[in-house]
Design a binder for these strands. Structure first.
Length: 670
DNA sequence: CGGTCTATAATTTTT
DNA sequence: TTATAGACCG
């Protein structure tokens, strides 16, 4: 326990830490030590005698929550640190709902549906709801429903009920309730409803938390603000930390106005601006500052850095995207060789995933290790979803989506047509498929063979459900046993095309079972808690362990938020890429500017921005123009050149470093 | 029913 | 160019 030392913080940071009571708005610019301030503030509260269990810190991602927990653990006593609740919005809502959702007519063993489950259910409802000539894209429907829910709608808006989307929305919500399931949006929506409508519950939670802290406040949506408002009692000890200039998630419901109009939600707040940046050189920082000044409606900030000077930002014109990629690869290799920069100190930032490919190819050719951030989720994997579905069924047999997923996996004589009959019967009964399967009237209409199969399945689930619910049952062992009994692994192996694929899938299953074992050892929440955690932890599987540790980062601007790198390349500063063509139609050019701002402020000491005169789009060569944002960059800190120019520069026989210096000298003469 | 073909569209992504 | 969805055919 290193403790925390106030005198390590700058005056503004200190003010943020020492202001404990009443609403507090901490405007934390990029690289100004935000996490440090939050954790120090928690440590300070504890040192002032606040009970750790009365403190709540909310974040967006599990990663952020974890990092905060770790940092806090280094500052205060372990026992105290573990009592502070540091949680994501969604995990907090699960907690609230598990202990009170019955007020809303759900059972507290509700299942949590992820996007895939959600989509499946919506598809089913669309086919049942749409007339012959009507069509509705399930993805579109899902997005619309999600948007509506994030704006607080629990049912279609008046006038919307008769439209197809409206009808699907209404049925979808009703169906979820029958299945005793909630989707990610419901977690927030229902938690807010519960707190707003049930005073007992609200009191209980207000009583629990006396000090609230919210990270990345610029990313909160309406529901999240309402949740915070409900949790804050008359004490209003709400400290929010954020940076409106880094609000880049408007398209998924984030309301910048939450931070811009903080005063109207929490009157008379203390406002602290953190403007000293500890990350970048002034050249980089001023470039970012001057760019972002072009945005209307923002909290004016002026970031500064004690790291005077620094090399200018390079803005380089490239003939085309291939040469852009080649340049980036060469430049990285050069710097690595001449200056010994580590691979993981380089990052290449992109507006779109599709841009990544070319650079990836070049790096592969140059044998430069790299890692692409993003990509396939562990949870999209069939076998993982299957296993979680088995678990979910045991805990909530009414969970149709999970039940249907595993009902004939592995094959056990429950054919799709039989399942279809069961589903139809469940609709008639207005009940779950599980209840339909057990219904005598349903079974009576089946062939002997089908009936036997149904009864066997019902028996199986019943048996394990009972075992699992016995106090002191060894749940991880039971799940394992069930998987074994149904012959899941054999089936998995059989359905894989290659033995390698089979092996890797099998390992995924084993890993999952193992992590359940481990979870069981450190937690008493059992399978329920484990499943909740798995559902809410859909994080990408990267940097986890193994070899992937080191390498050049290839990453989108969005995914790069919160990260920092000594050497940054920002590829594709073209009109249409950033700002993206779409943004002009949608009127979100400001957000694109913020996105560029986020990109620039990722760089610690070196930033190269490139753009192409032409680029291959959708297979054909398309001419491109320099982004309109380029005009907004300050000439004082940005040097413009072109690849051709650089290639024509006379090259000495000396090292690349002196070549670079010669170039600098030459440019300063111009 | 399942595989193959053709039309279509094309940011950003966490929980 | 490439991914995906729906149509179409064996």
């Amino acid at each position: 326990m290193a403790g925390f030392r106030l005198f390590d913080l700058n005056p503004e940071q200190q003010k943020a830490v020492l202001t404990t009571d009443g609403p507090l708005l901490i405007l934390a610019g990029a690289g100004t030590g935000k996490t440090r301030v939050i954790t120090s503030r928690v440590a300070y509260l504890i040192s002032e005698g606040v009970s750790p269990s009365n403190i709540l810190a909310v974040t967006f991602t599990n990663k952020a929550a974890k990092e905060m927990r770790e940092r806090l653990a280094a500052m205060v006593e372990k026992s105290a640190a573990s009592k502070v609740l540091m949680s994501t919005f969604h995990a907090l809502c699960v907690r609230i709902l598990r202990s009170g959702i019955e007020h809303l007519g759900y059972k507290n063993n509700f299942s949590i549906y992820d996007e895939g489950d959600q989509l499946g259910l919506i598809k089913k409802i669309i086919t049942r709801t749409a007339a012959q000539d009507e069509k509705l894209d399930p993805h579109l429907a899902k997005n619309l429903i999600s948007k509506a829910k994030n704006n607080g709608w629990r049912e279609p808006a008046p006038g919307e009920e008769k439209s197809l989307v409206g009808a699907v929305f209404a049925r979808y919500q009703a169906e979820l309730k029958t299945l005793n399931a909630v989707d990610f949006d419901d977690l927030l929506l229902l938690a807010v409803q519960l707190l707003e409508e049930h005073e007992v519950v609200r009191r209980k939670w207000q009583d629990r938390f006396h000090y609230l802290m919210v990270d990345e406040f610029q990313d909160t949506n309406r529901l999240q603000l309402r949740l915070i408002t409900q949790l804050a009692d008359e004490r209003k000890n709400v400290a929010v930390v954020g940076d409106d200039d880094q609000s880049i998630y408007g398209w998924r419901g984030a309301e910048v106005t939450n931070i811009l109009e903080f005063e109207s939600h929490f009157p008379n707040p203390t406002v602290v601006k953190l403007e000293q940046n500890y990350r970048s050189t002034n050249a980089i920082l001023q470039t970012a500052n001057i760019l972002i000044r072009n945005n209307p409606r923002r909290r004016v900030k002026n970031l500064w850095s004690a790291q005077e000077g620094g090399s200018k930002v390079r803005l380089i014109a490239m003939p085309d995207d291939r040469q852009e990629a080649q340049f980036i690869g060469d430049d990285i290799q050069n710097l690595q060789m001449t200056e010994g920069v580590k691979w993981e100190d380089f990052a290449v930032l992109f507006r779109m995933n599709s841009q990544i490919r070319l650079v990836e190819q070049v790096l592969r050719q140059l044998k430069i290790p790299y890692k692409v951030v993003g990509g396939k989720s562990f949870f999209d994997r069939r076998e993982v979803k299957d296993l979680l579905a088995y678990a979910s069924c045991l805990l909530n047999t009414d969970d149709d989506v999970s039940l249907l997923r595993i009902i004939n996996t592995p094959a056990r004589g429950l054919s799709p047509s039989l399942v279809e009959q069961a589903t139809a019967h469940s609709s008639r009964m207005r009940s779950s498929v599980w209840n339909a399967l057990r219904d005598a009237a349903f079974q009576a209409g089946l062939t002997t063979r089908s009936r036997t199969a149904v009864q066997a399945f019902v028996g199986l689930v019943d048996r394990y459900e009972t075992l699992l619910n016995q106090p002191l049952s060894d749940q991880p062992a039971l799940l394992r046993e069930m998987i074994e009994e149904v012959g899941y692994l054999e089936d998995l192996r059989r359905t894989c095309k290659t033995p390698e694929e089979g092996l890797s899938r099998e390992n995924n299953v084993k890993d999952l079972l193992k992590s359940f074992d481990e979870y069981g050892e450190k937690s008493s929440e059992g399978l329920r808690g484990f499943l909740d955690e798995m559902m809410l932890r859909q994080e990408r599987e990267e940097e986890d362990e193994d070899d992937k540790g080191s390498g050049v980062w290839l990453i989108t601007l969005h995914a790069a938020k919160g990260l920092e790198f000594p050497y940054v390349y920002l590829a594709g500063l073209e009109e249409g890429v950033i700002p993206h063509d779409r943004s002009k139609m949608e009127g979100t050019v400001d957000e694109e500017r913020r996105l560029l701002y986020v990109g620039i402020t990722r760089a610690k000491r070196n930033l190269a921005i490139t753009w192409c005169q032409q680029r291959i789009k959708f297979g054909s060569v398309t001419p491109c123009n320099l982004s309109s944002f380029a005009k907004e960059l300050p000439a004082e800190f940005v040097e413009q050149k072109s690849l051709v120019q650089m290639q024509n520069t006379p090259v000495s026989a000396e090292s690349a470093k002196s070549r670079f210096e010669a170039m600098l000298a030459m440019i300063s003469k111009l």
